[in-house]
Simulated scan of single mutants.
Amino acid sequence: MRALILVMDSVGISGAPDAARYGDDGADTVGHIADACAAGRADSNAREGPLYLPNLVALGLGQACSLANGRVPPGLDGRVEHRQFGCASEISKGKDTPSGHWEISGVPVPFEWGYFPRTKPCFPADLTNALCDQAGLPGIHGDCHASGTEIIAEFGERHMRTGMPICYTSADSVFQIAAHEQTFGLERLYEICAIARRLINPLNIGRVIVVGTSASDFKRTAHRRDFSVLPPENTILDHAASAGRDIVTIGKIDDIFAHRATRRNLRGDGNMALFDATLRGLASLADGGLLFANFIDFDTLYGHRRDVTGYATALEAFDDRLPELLSRLRSDDLLIITADHGCDPTWSGTDHTREQVPILAWTTQSSSPVGRRAGFADIGATAARHLDLPQPLHGVHF
């Protein structure tokens, strides 16, 4: 008996009930990608035609979309073989990665994160001065809201000449630092981010994100790190650790939970490497164990960059790997595939979108229909129930 939670980062299925508060009324990551594919607007040398996700459809993705907004996106109306599907709306106040993952694990975020203003400079002068003083920096480039891809390309060469890292933020509660790994040094970059983490704690900023770049085109490397704050309550990971259970985390899960109760962490450069890591982690996962995985490419490579074709291709590649995972599940295992927020690649800007998320469960055990859930915490509650762990303070198992 094991439990697996797989988070398809940013794969939302239409605007949450409070999406208008966030400027996201009408956003629909999966639906709009499917629309673009059906209209031929996402064709390329790598893919063409309607969005083709037969394995996710068999788990109920199309019907989960219908529960969320009343329509099955084109290409996703197929036979449902596992009828444990549903959708959930977030109750945490943000639309960011930590809030979504913490809520999935049974801990909604009850407070408002701190954010940096849309001014230039956007960081307080005393913060910038303290960072430069304590880290021995001659200054910083950026100091604004920006798309990571664009600002790294804009300041990359100047950064290498001056030794000044590129610092920027977004609509999320983040302080992002990018630097060239070879000329600046990856370990030095990590040290500077640790200093920044201490300095921004009083501002209630959720994450300091390290972005390493290499080569002349300043391509991001796989050495990204998130310096997060700790969840305010015990998560399902904490409950599993206290019970002495085996825990395997995949991708950036360990960073999201500030390395508390994340035990064995397996990383990979991209979704396919992360899928390989998931299969390895499952093979070694002991009875009663929990596997928690994040698949980051959907968000960082395609959602934020508003790349509809790339996002569709990534969804199809993920779907194509699912039979490998399903064939390795035991009859008493529980698999839940979900998401943490949206990042509609057809939407304006480059930020996340406030959306409902799918809940796709594979189980041979008898259980109630998932339906529409008020809060992601029901996912953690269900995994805890399956593993006979103490129930989190939030959420109702299905």
Score class of each variant (00 low, 15 high):
L6W: 03
D344T: 04
S147A: 11
P232L: 12
T97R: 06
D28W: 13
G23K: 12
L393S: 14
M1R: 10
H180W: 08
R305I: 07
F85T: 08
I5F: 01
T128Y: 09
P74K: 00
H341G: 04
A171M: 11
V109R: 08
G289V: 07
G185L: 03
D269P: 11
T128Q: 14
I140N: 02
G49C: 10
F275H: 14
F218N: 13
D35A: 09
I91M: 12
K219H: 14
T183W: 03
F292H: 13
D24L: 09
G136E: 06
L387G: 06
Y190I: 05
S242K: 15
L61I: 06
S366Q: 15
S331I: 14
V211G: 02
G60N: 07
L203H: 12
S105M: 09
D172S: 09
V174K: 13
W102P: 04
H82A: 11
T119R: 15
A317N: 13
F292A: 09
S66M: 11
S228D: 06
S89W: 10
H101M: 07
L274Q: 08
T338V: 14
E355F: 01
D9G: 11
I247D: 11
T363Q: 11
T353S: 06
D133G: 11
H145M: 10
F295M: 13
I379M: 09
G100F: 00
N55S: 14
A283C: 05
I140M: 06
G100W: 09
D217M: 03
A42K: 02
N45V: 13
C37Y: 01
D351N: 12
T300H: 10
I205Q: 00
F85A: 06
S10W: 01
I337G: 12
G156V: 04
L237I: 07
R207C: 11
S147C: 11
D332M: 03
D333T: 07
L279Q: 09
L53M: 15
T213G: 08
A339W: 07
G62A: 04
G62Y: 04
K219Y: 10
F123V: 03
T128H: 04
F116K: 04
E81K: 06
D320I: 00
Q176K: 12
Y311P: 02
L56D: 06
V370M: 00
G139N: 10
N45M: 10
A361T: 12
D9S: 08
H341C: 08
L285E: 08
P232R: 10
D133Y: 12
S44Y: 09
I104A: 04
G212R: 00
D276V: 05
N69W: 14
P50N: 10
R330P: 01
V30C: 15
F227M: 09
R306V: 13
T221S: 08
A27C: 14
A243W: 01
D299W: 05
S331Y: 11
T350D: 08
A146T: 05
E154Q: 15
